[in-house]
Nucleic acid binder design. Structure first.
Lengths: 167, 167
DNA sequence: ATCATTGCAAAAGATTTGCAAGGTC
DNA sequence: GACCTTGCAAATCTTTTGCAATGAT
């Protein structure tokens, strides 16, 4: 479910990879094989994912394209710092989504299939800013998650979950 | 910061302790010293807290009133199941707040002093229900956290944080 | 050559679990 | 007495860190 791009999209001239290169340069950090591998994986899908999802998609140890778990974690943090990804917490895990070039949006979270659905609401941002103003609070971001049951899961409440349980 | 009670308060005839007793009865669970200790501690403060906060307020091992860490975790989960507390995640930790007899509200979170401020918004609930309707999604709850900097911390940006860092 | 980065192994932090002993109904 | 609960110790899960080897500039 992709949000309406007309609503809040940031105009971007650079690809995520380019932007990340700039970020690295500006910080005296280096362009490495692992960082290139990860940026490709992350920006080839428009999904929400956690560190494990990403690691599972990578080649295993010994194969070309393998990146170790600590490096995955470290690099995800760099992507967040670079403004490429946003991070939030769900069920005790860190979840990442595209930020760079991607419109502001919020989420519906189905507690049955554990899937995230995106929606965009200008009114929510207005409401947020009003509330913050009233409290003389300077907003840097917000996170709204509406939890419940999605249409499919309501219909098929007797069937098996479609998405794997994470034990 | 207490939300306006006129807005969303659930009328409650029972004290949390009584309601919990009923819950235990209905489930064939037992009324124990530890559960009574914890319900008193939890409902004597109107704060947000995590498991550690609660444990720190309890007597230490060997003292009367001591409750072990696993029991604290287990009992907090029971309070949530019983509808007495609500739980959410902040910075990777579970945070609890009163639910039973407490009005619906949301939070401003200051990333400097790490304090939570509550606010109530009827419009937010309306917006939430509209969005959910559009997506044929059945809402069971929502969680909005507005992150930023509170007034005090903006003013005193050079001073030390008022609330202890959690290492 | 210098210094950032990686992978490994191990640590850390929060929470959960197996189980024997003890408490409640 | 039956069986729910507790506390202990240990496990689990996710994420982080120290460090020596490796790679980028």
């Amino acid at each position: 479910m992709t949000p309406d791009l007309s609503l809040g999209e940031v105009k971007t001239s650079l690809t995520p990879a380019k932007r990340f290169e700039e970020y690295l340069q500006s910080r005296g950090m280096r362009s490495t094989e692992q960082r290139r591998i990860l940026i490709n994986h992350v920006f080839n899908h428009h999904d929400h994912f956690d560190a494990d999802d990403l690691i599972e998609r990578l080649p295993t140890k010994g194969q070309p394209g393998y990146v170790s778990r600590p490096t995955v974690y470290r690099t995800l943090t760099e992507f967040v710092d670079a403004g490429l990804l946003r991070k939030f917490e769900l069920d005790g895990r860190g979840v990442y989504e595209h930020d760079y070039g991607y419109p502001q949006h919020d989420h519906l979270y189905c507690q049955v299939c554990r899937e995230l659905f995106e929606f965009v609401s200008k009114d929510l941002v207005k409401l947020r800013d009003e509330v913050a103003n009233n409290h003389r609070f300077r907003v840097s971001s917000h996170r709204l998650i509406i939890t419940g049951t999605c249409e499919d899961c309501r219909k098929n409440s007797s069937r098996t979950r479609r998405k794997q349980d994470r034990v």
